[in-house]
Design a protein around this nucleic acid. Sequence first.
DNA 1: TGAAAGTAGTACGATATCGCACTAGATGGT
DNA 2: ACCATCTAGTGCGATATCGTACTACTTTCA
Lengths: 151, 151
Amino acid sequence: MPDGSKTTPGVYFALFNEIGIIAQLSRALFEARLPDGLLTPHFSVINHMVRLGDGKTPLDLARAFQVPKTTMTHSLSILEKHGFVRITKNPDDGRSKCVFLTDTGRAFREDAIRLLGPDLAAMASEIDAEDVVSLLPHLEAIRKYLDANRP
Amino acid sequence: MPDGSKTTPGVYFALFNEIGIIAQLSRALFEARLPDGLLTPHFSVINHMVRLGDGKTPLDLARAFQVPKTTMTHSLSILEKHGFVRITKNPDDGRSKCVFLTDTGRAFREDAIRLLGPDLAAMASEIDAEDVVSLLPHLEAIRKYLDANRP
DNA sequence: TGAAAGTAGTACGATATCGCACTAGATGGT
DNA sequence: ACCATCTAGTGCGATATCGTACTACTTTCA
């Protein structure tokens, strides 16, 4: 019992343990395919803007990724340095800014996805996509619970 | 289709996205309950040693947590500074060392688990433990696949 | 046994993440 | 209109993570 492995809390321990390791390994896999200095967070921000539209504020993005705004400021400065995004003043709010994708940014994402294709295809041959689909709602529920109960 | 949301690769994107966010949120939840300068990796190493036995080498631990050995060296130095572990020479291999738990380290873990109890109990009321149990084998399969196919 | 190759750990430097504190601008109550 | 309060973004400092390169020791094999 002191190890918690059979108790109810132990189940959640095990869950977060597995998830933490998967997050780490999948991140490493991603980054092995990205060009030189680009990391998962950089790709993720671009990907998010392609999927859900650009023009959001840095704080919107920070909230979407559940990171402190200082972290997002830093990530965006990297993306801007690479020419992947363009950051403008927000005409509706003098404190704020807006982040827009550039063609270079879109191309970066396309390239990354293309380079990642073979890895995901290989994975699909061993981890059934239907299985993954059935996992997603449960993970989503856990994510939403944690998000709603943040410290 | 360019967003990948309906394609097979898109499913894996979504999976890793959810998992990444859950890892981040659960980590933040953990750390809110840990004393001052202690973080999840510190707790995890202690917890691992309680569950699976101490006396392992730093490299063993690095492999168990899928982190570079330099990261583990750093984590262990923190744990040693706090008096949670004792690091000795390995009598069987002059290059190597052995990491042992101290009573202080065990007490730290007990305290952390106790402080975390209410959070996990609250979670159990919304996220069914049986659901989590049924997720674990799938997550384990994914983790093992990723581990076996590291870059 | 002696040299080549491999392994454990560390030092160092680069970058990421994040908390704290500050500035500039917006908002709300009087 | 004014002042208190709140909010968006940033600068700074601390720590975590990780790659590279190095040392010391071990193993392998001729």
